[in-house]
């Protein structure tokens, strides 16, 4: 089998509410091979961010991981003590977020924030040594004049520069896995292209694995080796990137592809998906996509379809996939 850095099995993350427990992530199996990029696509509320927080063990009360395993290099992260987990964060798994504006602390310099993680993992490092390492980190993310930037505050940087600082912080301790949660959503398209380029180069240099969470199919197509499409807390389709775009199976994936306006094609109307994502406290019975699915049949309302292999390395959770097999 392939050499997986991260394996997620049967992960279920629940939140306690007045109306009982609701599952934001409900039985997800995924894996990320070493040095590769897994793209996770889905719309707001599909559970993609809670999934990544679960891997980092950062799900805040009243949420908790109720079931499943998360193994990094064969080591179960969910059974580590808090102190052991703190050691893993930053040094083995790091995360960058969507909002570079709010993820940096405005009252500390860039340099202080980059060296913070280094100090936490290596208490004896000298100040001069930390500064050198931080400036190296800034250089690695192609920030011009890193010596000057080290002493600047976040408000003195543009959005793209701040995201570069976030990446420098995340990579300061050379993690094996980088989780990037919508890293370019808040950025302009030309800056987005710079950041994606940078992430690709850094992956080549360091051999790290990346989990890239996004709602943008263009970004996934550009970056991911394998793609998982999530809907209402579950993975509904999983395939290598080429197969997912070239041979999409799940009706939800089709709906997403039909919804995106394309530069290479002119259509009078976009093929929008009717309705909206159901909230996790009012999930439909059976397949969670069936109320919005044009191919739904009565069975879809009663049974939850499992993720099943449909082609080589390609899985989909749909009774009716591939759809032409059932079309009249």
């Amino acid at each position: 089998m392939t050499d997986d850095l991260l394996r997620i099995d049967g992960l279920r993350t629940v939140f306690r509410t007045h109306g009982g427990e609701i599952a934001a992530v409900d039985g997800v199996d995924l894996s990320v091979p070493r040095g590769r990029t897994l793209g996770i696509v889905g719309e707001s509320g599909c559970g993609k961010s809670v999934l990544s927080l679960s891997v980092m063990r950062l799900v805040a009360h009243p949420g908790r991981v109720a079931a499943g395993h998360v193994a990094l290099d064969g080591r179960d992260l969910l059974s580590l003590s808090n102190a052991e987990m703190r050691d893993v964060r930053g040094s083995q798994v790091a995360m960058i977020f969507q909002e570079p504006m709010t993820s940096l602390n405005p009252v500390h310099t860039v340099g202080f924030q980059i060296t913070e993680a280094m100090r936490a993992h290596d208490a004896r490092a000298s100040k001069a040594d930390l500064r050198d390492r931080a400036i190296d980190a800034l250089k690695r993310v192609r920030i011009p004049a890193p010596e000057r930037r080290f002493d600047e505050y976040p408000h003195q940087l543009s959005g793209g520069m701040r995201q570069r600082v976030m990446i420098a912080m995340a990579l300061a301790c050379k993690p094996k896995l980088l989780i990037a949660d919508e890293p370019t959503t808040a950025l302009d398209v030309t800056v987005q292209a710079q950041i994606l380029d940078l992430l690709r180069d850094l992956q080549q240099e360091t051999g790290m694995s990346i989990i890239l969470i996004t709602h943008d199919l263009g970004v996934v197509a550009e970056m991911a080796d394998e793609v998982a499409v999530m809907y209402a807390g579950r993975v509904v389709e999983r395939a290598p990137a080429g197969a997912l775009f070239g041979d999409p199976m799940h009706p939800y994936t089709l709906g997403l592809l039909g919804s995106v306006p394309r530069l290479d094609e002119e259509r009078e109307n976009l093929l929008a998906i009717e309705g909206s994502v159901p909230p996790p406290f009012a999930l439909p019975k059976g397949c969670r996509f069936h109320p919005r699915c044009p191919f739904a049949v009565p069975e879809c309302r009663s049974e939850q379809p499992p993720l099943r292999p449909i082609a080589e390395g390609h899985q989909a959770a749909c009774l009716r996939a591939p759809v032409e097999a059932f079309a009249a």
């Binding site: 398209v189 991911a224 394309r262």
Partner: peptide
């Protein structure tokens, strides 16, 4: 601007 847009097509 046009060259910076990622296409939904891995090819």
């Amino acid at each position: 601007l046009l060259a910076a847009i990622p296409h939904p097509d891995p090819q």
